[in-house]
Design a protein around this nucleic acid. Structure first.
Lengths: 368, 368
DNA sequence: GAATTCGCGGTAAACGTTTTCTCTTGGGCG
DNA sequence: CGCCCAAGAGAAAACGTTTACCGCGAATTC
C-alpha cells in the first residue's frame, strides 16, 4: 500500500498529514514520526529536512490518531464542586495554566455537589479517555470512590482517599490556619466565638469544624451548641446561619467555613439592625480574590489554590507518566495561613492587652 | 484479516471493543456499529441481540477512534475573557450543561483579555479537533478574526463578526436594558448621571457606552466629560474610577459597564467619607449572582447568560451539523433588561413625582 | 414466471498516527 | 579480509471505529 490513496474524503478539512510531510522530505512516515517526537535515532540532517517539510506544509499531528494508538490522550479531567463559587474559577485557572504548560489539555466539570453528576462527569471523561482525573470537590462519597477505584486509572482526591495503587491525595492542613485565626481572635479579646460550618455531609466541612473545636479547647474556650451552626458554603447559607445565630445571644466573633459564607454573614449582620457594623468580627476561609473587596475587607484563612492546583497536577502526572520521579508518592500536603484584614477588631468593652501592637503590625503587612 | 488479533497490548486497559460485542452477538462489527448508532437498516431482533451483548461486555465506544474516522469529535471549544470574573463561570456552567445535553463535550479556555493567549487557545483547541469554537470574550480583535477565518471551521463571536460562511454571531441588545436603567434613574429624579465604561479597546465597552449616551440624549440630559470614565471591568477598576469621579463634583448616580465595576464603586463610595451611603445611586450590568448580595443589593441590567449560552450552542450546532434546520441563520439576538434592587434611590433633595408608586411596584416584584 | 429492485448484513478500506520488526549499510575487531 | 554488531531507516501492523461497496435472498413488477 504505497500507491496513491484511493478516494480521500473531500469534505474533510485539507489539513496536511504525516504522509505529506514524508513525501516532501523524501523519507518514510516512520521517520517523520520519530523526528517530530524527538526520538534520537534519526540522523540530524534527516531530522532537519523533516522539520523543514513540517513547516512548509504546516503539519500538525492529529491528536486523536496519536491517542488512539498510544493509549494516552494528554487530557486531564478536573471536577470541581461548584463553578459558581469564586474559589473554583481561581483553582480552574491555575490548574489549566499548569496543565497546558506541561502539554496537557483539561476537561472541566462542575458537580454541583451531586454525587450522581460527579459520576456522570467522570464516566464521560473516561469515555473521552482522559489520562487521569482530579476530583477537587470536597464532597465525594465513599461508594463513588469505591466504584471508581475498580477501573484503574489515575485519580486524585482532596483530603482523604482509600489507599489504592492508582489513587493519590492532596491533604490540606486546615488546623494550621484555623488555629491562627482562633488565636488571632482570642488575642483581640474575643471569648464567645461561633463557627458556621459547611454542610456536614462534606468530610471537609467536618474537618474544618473539628480543627476549630480543637483550637478553642487548646485556648480553654468553650463553644455552646447554639454557636455551632451548619451552613451551606454559599452566601444564602451564611445569611440563614446568621439569622439562626441572632436568635440567641450573639457571639462577638464568627469564624466561617468558607468566604462565601462569610460574605453572607456580613450581609446578614448588616440586616440585623440590633448590631452595628464592626460589633461582630468575621473570619472567612479560602481567601478568594473577592474577599479583599468586601466591606469591610475580609480577614480570612488562605488556602492557596495555586498550591492546590500544582499539587493536583503533579500528583496526576505521577500517576500517569510511566517513569515519573514521584511515582511512588501517594500524598501531597498544602498549608493554610491567616490573612488579617479589617473584618476583625476588638470586641466591645474588651481592653486590648499587648496584642495591640501585634495586630497593627500584622495589618500593616497586608498589602492593600 | 478475520482471524484472532496477534499481539494485543497487555498494558492497555482491558476495555471491551466493538469486536468483542460482535463476537458475542454473532454478527459483524459493521452491524454492531450500525446498531449502536441507531441506523435503521438493522433488523430489530439483531439490534436487540447486539444491545444485549453491549450490556454484557460493558462496551463503550472509543470516542477517539470514532472521531478519527468520522472527522467529528463532538467537542466544542469555549473561550471566555476572564474566568475570574463571576459572570463567566455562570456562562460556562450554562454552556456546559447545554452542550452535554446535546452530546458534546467542552474545552474551556480563559483568554485573560490577551489576544495572543486567545489565539493559542484556539490553536490548541483546533489541534484537538474541536468541532467549533465559541469565542465569548468581548475583546477579540479584527486581525485575529481574520487569521482564524482562513481555516474554515465553525466559529461563534459575540456582538460583531465579519460576514463569512463559517462565522456566526450572537448580538446582545445593550440599548434596551441601558435605556431602561437611564429612564429608571431619571424617573427617580437623577440628572447628573455618570458612566464608567470598560476598557475602550473592547468593542463591547464602546457599544455599552454609546447606548448610555444615546439614552441620555433621548431624555435631554447632558454628560460632562469628567462623568465619562474608563474603567477595567474589575473591582479594582471600579475603585479607581470612583476615585477619579471624586476629584470633581460627584454625580448623583453612576451607571457601570459591568457588575464587578459596580461592586468596586460601592466599595469606593464607602471609602469616600465625604459621601454617606445611599447618597449616590449605582447601577451595574450583567446581573451576576453576587449582585443581589451586595450591600446594598445592586440594581443592574441583566444579560442572561443562559440565553447567551443557548444562543452560542445553537449557533455552533448550526455550523457543525450538516443538515441543521438553522444552518442558514447567521445572527442570534439576546435582550437585556433592568432589574431594580436597592442600590438606586432618590437623589438628595429631589422630590419624587409619580415615579414613587412605580418604583415600589417594581421593587416588590423582584424576588429576594 | 423472469427480471429488477430493494432491504439487510458482511467484508474490507480508510482515518492518521506509533511502534515493532526487518533490512541495509558501515564500521570495528579479530 | 571477513565477521559481527550497531545504527538508522523503511515496511507494515496495530489502535477502534465508520462507511463504501458488494452479495444474497426476498419482494415487486411487467
Amino acid at each position: 500500500m504505497g500507491g496513491p490513496r484511493k478516494n480521500p474524503n473531500p469534505l474533510r478539512a485539507a489539513t496536511a498529514s504525516i504522509r505529506d510531510v514524508a513525501q516532501l522530505a523524501g523519507v518514510s512516515i516512520a521517520t517523520v514520526s520519530r523526528a517530530v517526537n524527538g526520538i534520537s535515532t534519526v540522523a540530524p540532517e534527516l531530522a532537519e529536512r523533516v522539520w523543514g517539510a513540517v513547516k512548509e506544509v504546516g503539519y500538525v499531528p492529529n491528536t486523536q490518531a496519536r491517542a488512539l494508538v498510544s493509549g494516552r490522550s494528554h487530557i486531564l479531567g478536573l471536577v470541581v464542586s461548584e463553578i459558581m463559587n469564586p474559589f473554583f474559577p481561581e483553582l480552574v485557572q491555575e490548574f489549566e495554566n499548569l496543565a497546558i504548560e506541561q502539554g496537557y489539555e483539561v476537561f472541566i466539570g462542575s458537580s454541583n455537589c451531586d454525587p450522581a453528576r460527579t459520576e456522570g462527569l467522570i464516566r464521560r471523561m473516561l469515555q473521552r479517555s482522559v489520562d487521569g482525573v482530579a476530583v477537587m470537590t470536597f464532597d465525594v462519597d465513599e461508594e463513588l470512590i469505591q466504584k471508581l477505584a475498580e477501573r484503574d486509572f489515575p485519580l486524585v482526591f482532596v483530603d482523604k482517599a482509600p489507599d489504592l495503587p492508582n489513587i493519590r491525595v492532596v491533604k490540606v492542613n486546615y488546623g494550621e490556619g484555623i488555629r491562627e485565626a482562633v488565636q488571632h481572635l482570642a488575642a483581640l479579646g474575643h471569648r464567645r466565638i461561633a463557627f458556621i460550618s459547611g454542610p456536614l455531609q462534606m468530610r471537609t466541612a467536618v474537618a474544618r469544624r473539628d480543627a476549630f473545636l480543637r483550637s478553642m479547647v487548646e485556648l480553654g474556650l468553650t463553644v455552646p451548641n447554639e454557636h455551632l451552626v451548619e451552613g451551606a458554603h454559599t452566601m444564602e447559607g451564611g445569611i440563614m446561619a446568621m439569622q439562626q445565630l441572632a436568635l440567641g445571644e450573639l457571639p462577638t466573633a464568627i469564624l466561617c467555613s468558607n468566604d462565601m459564607t462569610a460574605i453572607g454573614v456580613l450581609h446578614g449582620l448588616h440586616r440585623t439592625s440590633q448590631v452595628s457594623p464592626g460589633d461582630v468580627s468575621v473570619v472567612g476561609f479560602d481567601d478568594i480574590h473577592l474577599a479583599q473587596f468586601m466591606l469591610p475587607p475580609l480577614t480570612t484563612v488562605q488556602m492557596s489554590c495555586r498550591q492546590l492546583a500544582a499539587a493536583a497536577v503533579e500528583a496526576l502526572r505521577a500517576g500517569i507518566e510511566p517513569d515519573h520521579p514521584l511515582a511512588q508518592q501517594k500524598e501531597w500536603q498544602i498549608p493554610t495561613h491567616l490573612v488579617v484584614r479589617q473584618s476583625t477588631a476588638f470586641p466591645h468593652g474588651a481592653l486590648p492587652a499587648l496584642s495591640n501592637a501585634k495586630r497593627t503590625t500584622r495589618r500593616a503587612s497586608v498589602k492593600q
